[in-house]
Design a protein around this nucleic acid. Structure first.
Lengths: 344, 344
DNA sequence: CTGAAAGCGCTTACAG
DNA sequence: CTGAAAGCGCTTACAG
């Protein structure tokens, strides 16, 4: 008669545990959550049964009854090769330490205008971490107005709102970096590999670059700007094109380390040396930068710490127990070989 | 009197929608899930209200009532810099295309023996993708015996069980790669940077290496083996140590591309050239390999496709509509400059 | 300290 | 095609 079984054998529930231990489900719940005192005798009896049955409370039931998901959402446009893995590492660790799960959604690209359903929000998380280009402002605002805790990372709050942000100091460091190229090495023709246009970090880095040029009386030359888009390939191709077109430059400021990798590869493939013929500098101090040949001069960004801080901010917001501020992380110049300096 | 408000204003529920649209919650549920025919008039009325109220069905309630979470769990020991981002990209895309959420847990390291609570399992997912070193066999077996769909990636099934696996062909490719070094370039002293000891891919690659040596009558020299552990730093240091100790070798087989990056960096930092003084080859063909200087000779592993395939396998298992098999992905030699070949 | 009961917000037979 | 009702598996006041 029972040839049509339910697909999955019904899991053991809190009721099974309670029955087997001879207590009420309330008591089981209490030992599970340590939410109220329980006689040590009952407690150990319940724990024994839990072990014996291999019982794990269902997250969905818990979330529904408890009105919280214990889950943090992570909205990114993309998981690139070097920067985001470290960012995620920081986020993941902070989340886990505080007993939160991580729901990740790589949203970006297919946000083709109309009715995209955003898979992360108030319906399945207690709060979200929003990275650049992952969510339209409109949706961010909606989440925020719906009282869902939101922390923005690497991007400012939409105009008029006070959503907490965790950002990076880009401008001064970029300026210092270019100052170094000009003042120490005497470069005057410094090419610039820009990042994605809607990326605030990238834009700020460009401002710093332009400020430094201006301060040294060097006019900005549009021919020396190309889109590296934080990508190896795009940057490689951009530099290749400059070289083929006979554009003259003695240094390249790559807007992030990834672009720098592409730039170096293009320069060398053209038979030129870094930094002897053309210097290359990057931004981020992502882990690979010290293993490039030559080791990359760049700006250190505390990537993991940013991920961790953003997550802790979000958790504070969720738990409502600490005032939450925006935070800008300091950065610092890291001089290695690729700018022309000889001290490793 | 109401100075003690509930923290979050109660969200709009299916009941609100039903009331406002003048229908039952059953009807709302039906248009939401398209699970049964609804008059187009009611349908549009309900849809309008959903839009107006900004209603999003709560995932927890849905999961509890529907007995499924629509969520896939991803268990990794670590998110490294280049390989896993692409793997995750494939997984994420496949999951999203099939309306599954992705819950990620980086388990590994703190599995310090005793009572670690595994945060991913039957209580919050419909199935899990398990990567090497992320979960003890014991827990994998428990999940499997509890009827939770499991797909193993880059690792074989625990002895005696038939858990579906998605793996990579490592041995032949490694052997072909070493054959190339020996037969084409005449190298005889080929150093080996091993991967993590418990990593099946790494072990298979070592077998291939040893097979090739043996086939050419070259004895395996333990002094030429060191632990690169798939890491830049460890590999850099290992090669540095060889060089300082005066160990002689004319080529390095780095067990993955990351180790190759560290190896190249150490060789060059010692003032030697790749491949003129020492050739270096890797494994994975991760995206960076073609942007290294010189471009890296390696073995192409279809990383994204593996992620996608594993995810589709898992979804098939979850939906129970297609037989699921284990699958081994083919790999192929990618000859670039770093082995000594001149054709880019 | 413990238990009975209500309720979280959905889905899904079951009637009609 | 539509609705009333049961139930998913928990948490949490409320009594005792």
């Amino acid at each position: 008669m029972s040839h049509l079984q339910t697909k999955r054998s019904s899991r053991t529930t809190i009721t099974d545990v309670a029955r087997q231990a001879g207590v009420s489900i309330s008591t089981v719940s209490r030992v599970l959550n340590q939410s109220a005192p329980v006689t040590s005798e009952l407690e150990s009896r319940v724990k024994a049964v839990i072990d014996e049955l291999g019982y794990r409370p269902q997250t969905a039931a818990r979330a529904l009854a408890g009105r919280k998901t214990d889950t943090i959402g992570l909205l990114l446009s993309e998981i690139g090769p070097d920067f985001y893995p470290f960012m995620i590492r920081g986020i993941e660790a902070a989340a886990r330490e505080n007993q939160f799960n991580l729901l990740i959604n790589v949203a970006g690209k297919d946000t083709t205008g109309n009715g995209v359903s955003f898979t992360l929000g108030e319906h399945n998380t207690d709060g979200v971490l929003v990275f650049p280009s992952s969510l339209p402002d409109k949706e961010i605002i909606r989440l925020h107005k719906n009282d869902l805790p939101v922390v923005l990372v690497q991007r400012p709050s939409p105009a008029g709102l006070q959503i907490p942000c965790v950002t990076i100091e880009n401008r001064c460091s970029a300026r210092n970096l270019i100052d170094h190229l000009i003042e120490v090495h005497g470069y005057r023709r410094i090419a610039f590999l820009a990042g994605p246009e809607d990326h605030e970090d990238a834009n700020q880095r460009e401002f710093g670059y332009r400020e430094s040029l201006a301060a040294h009386g060097i006019p900005f030359d549009p021919k020396l700007k190309a889109n590296g888009r934080f990508k190896w390939q795009a940057s490689h191709e951009a530099v290749e094109a400059w070289l083929q077109d006979g554009v003259e430059f003695d240094a390249i400021f790559a807007c992030d380390d990834q672009s720098a990798v592409g730039a170096i590869s293009a320069v060398r493939q053209a038979g030129l040396s870094v930094p002897e013929d053309i210097a290359v500098v990057g931004f981020d101090d992502s882990e690979i930068s010290r293993y490039l040949s030559p080791p990359l001069t760049t700006v250190r960004v505390p990537i993991m710490e940013i991920g961790r801080a953003a997550t802790l901010q979000l958790i504070n917001l969720i738990q409502g127990n600490v005032p939450v501020f925006s935070k800008e992380f300091a950065t610092e110049l890291v001089i290695r070989r690729s700018c022309g300096c000889s001290n490793v």
